[in-house]
């Protein structure tokens, strides 16, 4: 199954989004939070991201969702070095994580999960 990593500045935010994606997704998905800096404060940690990707990786690839700023940059750098199995998606954090988790739980491949996450951008709220 494709794994999902939620990278955010706040530990609580990452854990909350991961919790929602696991619960609201259709079926059981693997969603790992990578929130906060190394010490649990607000920030981004490459090391936390590495650990989360390792945990989420079941062999079928990993989709990374990032909140903003340094999370996005950290994810870009990580993904560039990680090779083709890890993909950073351009998606809203909450909707993208829920969509990705739903699709991943069906056993869909990496490309399908990426598409599902990025399609979440189109869901307008007004």
């Amino acid at each position: 199954m494709v794994g999902i990593v939620v990278l955010a500045h706040s530990r609580k935010l990452a854990e909350g989004v991961a919790e929602m994606a696991r619960a609201m997704g259709v079926g059981k998905a693997v969603v790992e939070p990578a929130g906060g800096d190394e010490h649990g404060g607000l920030g981004t940690s490459m090391e936390r991201l590495k650990r989360a990707v390792r945990t989420a990786d079941g062999g079928d690839g990993v989709v990374v969702l990032a909140d903003l700023g340094s999370s996005v940059l950290t994810a870009k750098v990580f993904v560039a070095a990680a090779g083709t199995g890890v993909i950073l998606v351009d998606a809203p954090l909450v909707e993208g994580a829920v969509a990705a988790a739903s699709m991943a739980a069906t056993g869909a491949d990496l490309r399908a999960v990426v598409r599902a996450a990025e399609a979440a951008r189109g869901h307008r709220k007004t």
């Binding site: 920030g43 981004t44 490459m46 700023g69 940059l73």
Partner: peptide, 15 residues
């Protein structure tokens, strides 16, 4: 620098 700096400075300066 990438792995220890944090913020956008880590990836930018490190890379």
């Amino acid at each position: 620098i990438v792995s220890t700096t944090g913020g956008v400075s880590g990836p930018l300066y490190g890379m």
